[in-house]
Design a binder for these strands. Structure first.
Lengths: 216, 216
DNA sequence: ACGAAATGTAATCGATGATTACATAATGGA
DNA sequence: TCCATTATGTAATCATCGATTACATTTCGT
């Protein structure tokens, strides 16, 4: 098939089409990559550039390499993650700190289930070095601090059997992280857990954990 | 390293040059890929072929595509995983089924920590479809069945607070899976957990969980 | 207005997964 | 034993990808 060169030098064919300079290519590339990930396709710089209707080399004006793009995508995903977790905790606000701790876990797992690609990018650490983004580190630390506060309050109110908060914190995070990842990694079908009952199962599992650490 | 075939297998024994036919290229490729993964390098068919001192196209005589190679690698890793878990449980055999359940968890996390690349390949499901290998599915199911038996025994001996074994099973697996993956994904430095204390922390976390589900 | 900085394009490189045509060794039946 | 079939490896080739470089065009500060 002969290469059809329509207009010799006309990149902006119709005078209104697209200016030489893209409005905010960086932003558009991040969104494109995010969308790619969401579709389950693997994210390539070229494909992101293709979706932004831009040359394959253009993205490298905004990101030194692929990892930097992925890091930016991760930052965006982490921002949304944190925002939704905090919003969820803010709207349904149980007075009991232990119940808020529980609500955090459920919101965490739920978001991971409903945004699998984003969660994958955030959590895996395969796309970027973990300390490479200050914003990402901060957002993450903020969520950790949130759960720490909840546990401290719970302990102060005598709701916990153990005073080893760090251990509870890490165990709890391991639990919800593990549950989210087992779902993401496709393990549940092999465990006889149907797609429709995963969210309920998440609640049950979290409740089991809460019951285990609570005084009674 | 010249491959010496001592057996009178009439296997084109050459003293100097490598024979046209590689002894067991399939095996060698799997080992090479396994080793590549262990080194943290990303596994490419070409590099595996390179290590086997064979042309880039040769592996495709044994595996239809890269995923098939990775699946074979996963099978091998899963076999070793299961073997070590079972060996560990066999040698140090606590009578108490709940303690054996605990020992399983610790052995699980420990293996994952000491064989991170293997665990990654086994667990992620990114390298192959989860149902694609019967052997892998079987080995995995066997380990699940093992923990199920332990829990059933524990329940029969009145060691558990709850009779909802499925919930306990999935919670427990989520916990150790999550802990292992948090380590693998490099989360622990951000949690103030030093490299040297991770294994101890694993024990503490598992003990916390056990204490939560046990009668007292 | 003008020149420097920012941004996009085009061409190109090396590595990779994959396919195809061909070459050679291994095997088993007549 | 001979030789044809099959199994296995090689060589050449392709498309895609991340990345780099030289060059073109726009934008913006002074």
């Amino acid at each position: 098939m002969p290469r059809q060169t329509s207009k010799p030098r006309a990149r902006h064919q119709t005078s209104e089409a697209r200016p030489y300079h893209h409005g905010d290519l960086r932003r558009v590339l991040i969104d494109a990559a995010l969308q790619l990930a969401e579709e389950g396709a693997e994210v390539s710089v070229r494909e992101a550039a293709r979706r932004a209707a831009v040359s394959p080399g253009a993205p490298f004006r905004h990101f030194p390499n692929r990892d930097a793009l992925m890091a930016a995508v991760a930052e965006e995903a982490q921002r949304r993650f944190r925002a939704e977790i905090e919003a969820t905790l803010d709207e349904a606000r149980p007075a009991n700190p232990l119940e808020r701790f529980r609500a955090f876990g459920i919101a965490y797992v739920r978001w991971a289930m409903r945004n699998p690609a984003h969660f994958e990018i955030i959590s895996t650490g395969r796309y970027f070095a973990h300390g490479s983004s200050a914003e990402l580190t901060r957002d993450n630390a903020e969520l950790v601090a949130l759960t720490e506060r909840l546990l401290t309050e719970a302990a102060a109110q005598g709701l916990l059997r153990s005073a080893d908060l760090k251990r509870i914190l890490i165990a709890g995070r391991s639990l919800i992280y593990g549950f989210a990842r087992m779902n993401l990694d496709g393990h549940f079908p092999r465990w006889g857990v149907e797609e429709g009952e995963i969210e309920r199962m998440a609640e049950e599992v979290i409740d089991l954990f809460i019951a285990g650490i609570a005084t009674r």
